[in-house]
């Protein structure tokens, strides 16, 4: 027989008074947070030197649930806030946890320039193809022909390929997984946390309430079954070839893993040089 438990081993990473979270049944965000906490547990990061920053949106609520130093910023401004944190306190490990709309629509320019400068932070972006919290409007990642509240006849805007944007802007680590690839996602998060420089992990996650039920996937379970049948792992390919299409294969894997000097190292070297 199964054993009824009162608490979970990961509860020490969570703000217990805020659990259960508000995410809908079938949402992928809980799974992603779960993988992140497992990754934290398995890396030897000192939790006192960890800061989690989120923007606005369903994903933005992660900062409120995780029991480390965290900040819930204004819409789109998670990356600049994290940049400031990192430059003021170089010892800090900074993680930005936010959604596709917050990071790439409202905060699009901040993301591009943080990647260009190679600021040492980890960006975890949960891509659910729409603005879930406000009722399922189309966003910059909604695939062509997908239906949304503001695109009832199908989307005609070309979407962003987030991994391609990150790689082209200069990120040193770029990976994409779906919320079904939990083990690989956990390993990828561990690699990204240990990577020096701007590391980016995109997670394709179901949003049954706002996106799925308008696109013939009314439950999270059905979306996960779709991921199981349609995801193809291709490590090291050019992220430009990893476009996402409605009804097509989802290319996942680790696309970029390179070394580059980071901005905060350069800044502190410059200060030393200038003081001589």
């Amino acid at each position: 027989m199964e054993i009824e438990a009162k608490s979970h081993p990961l509860d020490r990473y969570l703000r217990a008074d805020r659990i259960p979270h508000i995410w809908c049944p079938g949402c992928g965000l809980g799974t992603v947070l779960n993988c992140f906490l497992h990754a934290l547990e398995e890396t030897d990061i000192d939790l006192k030197n960890l800061a989690v920053v989120s923007g606005i949106g369903c994903t933005g609520r992660v900062a409120g649930y995780i029991n480390v130093d965290s900040y819930h910023t204004t819409h789109g401004r998670a990356v600049p806030f994290a940049t400031g944190l990192k430059l003021a306190n170089p010892k800090l490990k900074v993680v930005v946890f936010s959604g596709d709309g917050d990071l790439f629509a409202i905060g699009g320019n901040h993301f591009i320039h943080a990647a260009r400068r190679n600021i040492d932070m980890t960006v975890i972006c949960v891509n659910n193809y729409n603005y879930g919290m406000t009722g399922g409007q189309l966003g910059p990642t909604t695939p062509l022909e997908a239906r949304a509240t503001t695109a009832p006849y199908g989307n005609i805007e070309h979407p962003f390929n987030l991994c391609h944007v990150a790689a082209a802007s200069g990120a040193v680590y770029v990976a994409r997984w779906t919320s079904l690839h939990v083990r690989r996602l956990k390993e990828s998060m561990k690699e990204a946390l240990n990577k020096k420089g701007f590391s980016f992990v995109e997670i394709i996650a179901p949003c049954p309430t706002a996106f799925g039920r308008r696109n013939k996937e009314p439950t999270g379970l059905e979306t996960l079954k779709y991921y199981k049948e349609h995801s193809v792992i291709k490590h090291g390919i050019d992220p430009a070839e990893a476009d996402i299409e409605m009804g097509g294969d989802i290319v996942v894997g680790k696309f970029v893993d390179i070394e580059k000097p980071t901005f905060d190292e350069a800044v502190h070297e410059l200060i030393k040089k200038a003081r001589k």
Binding site: H8, L10, P20, H21, G30, T31, L33, R183
Partner: peptide
């Protein structure tokens, strides 16, 4: 431990 990784609610381990 797959169930404990995929559970969105931290309800199974």
């Amino acid at each position: 431990g797959f169930c404990s990784l995929i559970c969105p609610e931290f309800a199974i381990h």
